[in-house]
Design a protein around this nucleic acid. Structure first.
Length: 261
DNA sequence: GTTGTTCTAT
C-alpha cells in the first residue's frame, strides 16, 4: 500500500537528444530552473552510445515543471528536444532482460557479459562527494566488449621486481605477526572486559531517522539483523591492547635505566 | 551496502 505511494515525479524524460549532448549540457540547461538531483543519459548497453534520450531529475517538482515548459522543444546541440515527465521507474537489469529477451544475452561475444558485470559492480561509487549529483564520467571511453574476459587490466608489467617486493612485504608482515602473536595472550582479562562493555552498550536500533530523502524502496531486504558482536571488537581491542601493552612494557624496560641514572 | 540498460529511433 504505502509502497505504491510514489514521490512526486521529479524526473523529466527528454527525448530526441543529440548524440553529442552530454549530461553536463543538460545539467547546465536544466539547472537554470532549479536544483538538479541527477542527470542520466542512458547509453546503449553494448555500444555505449547515447540512445537519444535522457532523464533529468529535479529536486522540486515545480522546478521540473518549469523546466519542462521552458525547455520543451528547445534546440540543444542541433536537435529539438522534447520533454515530458518520466513515467516509470528505472528498470532493473532483470526487467530489461525479461523485456528484451534472452537471445541478446546469449549472443556470441556477450557470453561472458554476466561475469563482467558482476565483477564490475563494485567499482562504481567511491566518488569523493556523492552529495547530490552523480557524475558518471568515470569512464570516458568505456566499452564492455573490449574488456578482456573477467580480469580488468591489472596486468601492468608484472616484473620480477614487483613480485619480489610483494613477497618481501608479505614476509616481513608474517614475521612481525608471528612475533606479536608469540607475546600477546591476554585472553581472560580481555574477554571479561569486552563482555562488561557489551553489556553496558545499549543497542541503538530504534533510531527512525526520518530523512526528507525519498526512500521509496523500503529496505525490507536488508532487515537481516547483522549480528556482529564480540569477535570483531574483541579482535581489534586485543590488537590495540597488545600494542599499548607492548608500549608500556617497553617503557618499563627503559624506565629503570633512566630512573636509575 | 541504495542501483547507472528508465519511456528511443534506426
Amino acid at each position: 500500500m504505502s509502497r505504491y505511494l510514489r514521490p512526486p515525479n521529479t524526473s523529466l524524460f527528454v527525448r530526441n537528444v543529440a548524440d553529442d549532448t552530454r549530461s553536463e549540457d543538460l545539467r547546465r540547461e536544466f539547472g537554470r530552473y532549479g536544483p538538479i538531483v541527477d542527470v542520466y543519459v542512458p547509453l546503449d548497453f553494448y555500444t555505449r552510445r547515447p540512445r537519444g534520450f535522457a532523464y533529468v531529475q529535479f529536486e522540486d517538482v515545480r522546478d521540473a515543471e518549469d523546466a519542462l515548459h521552458n525547455l520543451d522543444r528547445k534546440w540543444i546541440c542541433g536537435r529539438q528536444i522534447e520533454i515530458q515527465f518520466a513515467q516509470g521507474d528505472r528498470k532493473t537489469p532483470n526487467q530489461m532482460k525479461a523485456k528484451e529477451g534472452r537471445n541478446v544475452y546469449s549472443s556470441s561475444r556477450y557470453d561472458d557479459y554476466d561475469r563482467y558485470r558482476r565483477s564490475r559492480s563494485r567499482s562504481y561509487e567511491r566518488r569523493r562527494s556523492r552529495s547530490r549529483s552523480f557524475d558518471y564520467n568515470y569512464r570516458r571511453s568505456y566499452s564492455p566488449r573490449n574488456r578482456p574476459t573477467g580480469r580488468p587490466r591489472r596486468s601492468r608489467s608484472h616484473s620480477d621486481n614487483d613480485r619480489f617486493k610483494h613477497r618481501n612485504r608479505s614476509f616481513s608482515r608474517s614475521k612481525s605477526n608471528s612475533r606479536s602473536r608469540s607475546k600477546s595472550q591476554p585472553k581472560k582479562e580481555m574477554k571479561a572486559k569486552s563482555r562488561s562493555r557489551s553489556a553496558s552498550h545499549t543497542k541503538t536500533r530504534g533510531t527512525s531517522k526520518t530523512d526528507s530523502k525519498t526512500h521509496y524502496k523500503s529496505g525490507s531486504r536488508y532487515e537481516k539483523e547483522s549480528r556482529k558482536k564480540e569477535p570483531a571488537r574483541s579482535k581489534s581491542q586485543s590488537r590495540s591492547q597488545s600494542r599499548s601493552r607492548s608500549k608500556s612494557r617497553s617503557r618499563s624496560w627503559t624506565s629503570p635505566k633512566s630512573s636509575g641514572h
